[in-house]
Nucleic acid binder design. Structure first.
Length: 262
DNA sequence: CGGAGCCCCTGTAAGC
DNA sequence: TGCTTACAGGGGCTCC
């Protein structure tokens, strides 16, 4: 599931291939991935020049000479710079030099065009790797469970289920802990845990849990570093107690009942 | 504000 | 073995 490190890896692997290219033609085939008028989207993209490719939260922002193309990979979205269109290819971009394919079996991803600032991106909270410790602590003054807050993209942009669970484990904080009740020391520990884990995950090319790959089709390796995510029933690396899995905000939540305190 | 529940979708895993 | 059902999850939505 692409979260900040995976999206960052995709952006890095695709940027040089796309920047400066002109879109010759496109083809979209999913009413879910490309909601609205697909013929109009195709028309708007034809002839546009790609100025830059950047990440904001889990969104890929492709700035064009007119407008912005926003790509969200959802659960199973992939951008690939080579290969052939198959049953799950829902976007094909023919460039003046090269090709870009969008694959997405579950079609939870979105490809959207906007003239100005993309509205979904405007609602995002700060970047976890850019926010200051003071600002992070200030934002924690809310009554919500910390796990729910970390998943909230308006709180911080880019954390998903994997990195929320891993960050809470690294900080020794129980996922059901109330954010506003975390003292300064624990909030500080969480801040550094999030930054450390995201930075490390980016260095390893993200986590390939099922079939995530970058635009060149290469897997990431951070899944080898997971301490709790996907390890229900296994012994905790710190204390040996069994990792537990509960539901928080309708999301599977993995934690060590001994190492993580409310 | 916060949380529960539901929806979109389909490959995979578990159950019978 | 082969079928059916449950589950996984990001994000948007409604309702309380």
């Amino acid at each position: 599931m692409p979260e900040l490190p995976e999206v960052e890896t995709v952006v890095r692997s695709v940027a040089a291939h796309l920047t400066g290219r002109r879109i010759v033609s496109t083809r979209f085939t999913s009413r879910f991935v490309t909601p609205g008028n697909r013929a109009k989207l195709t028309q708007r993209l034809a002839g546009r020049r790609i100025e830059s490719v950047k990440r904001r939260g889990k969104f890929i922002l492709i700035a064009l000479d007119q407008g912005t193309l926003t790509v969200h990979l959802g659960m199973t979205g992939k951008l690939l710079i080579s290969g052939e269109a198959g049953a799950h290819t829902h976007g094909v971009f023919h460039l003046d030099d090269g090709l870009l394919l969008y694959h997405d079996p579950r079609q939870f991803g979105r490809i959207e065009f906007s003239d100005g600032a993309p509205p979904r991106v405007a609602r995002l909270g700060p970047e976890p790797l850019e926010i200051s410790l003071e600002a992070f602590q200030a934002r924690l003054r809310r009554k919500a469970r910390i796990k729910a807050l970390l998943l909230n993209q308006a709180f911080l942009a880019g954390l998903g289920n994997i990195y929320a669970d891993e960050s809470l484990f690294a900080a020794g904080i129980h996922p059901l802990a109330i954010a506003a009740r975390l003292n300064k020391a624990r909030a500080t520990k969480l801040y550094h845990a999030i930054r450390g884990i995201l930075t490390h995950a980016i260095q390893l090319g993200g986590s390939s849990m099922s079939d995530y790959v970058n635009a060149q089709g290469e897997r990431g390796w951070f899944q080898m570093e997971h301490r709790v995510y996907g390890r229900e029933g296994e012994p905790c690396a710190n204390c040996g107690q069994r990792i537990r899995k509960i539901l928080v905000s309708q999301r599977g939540t993995h934690f060590c009942p001994h190492c993580q305190k409310k």
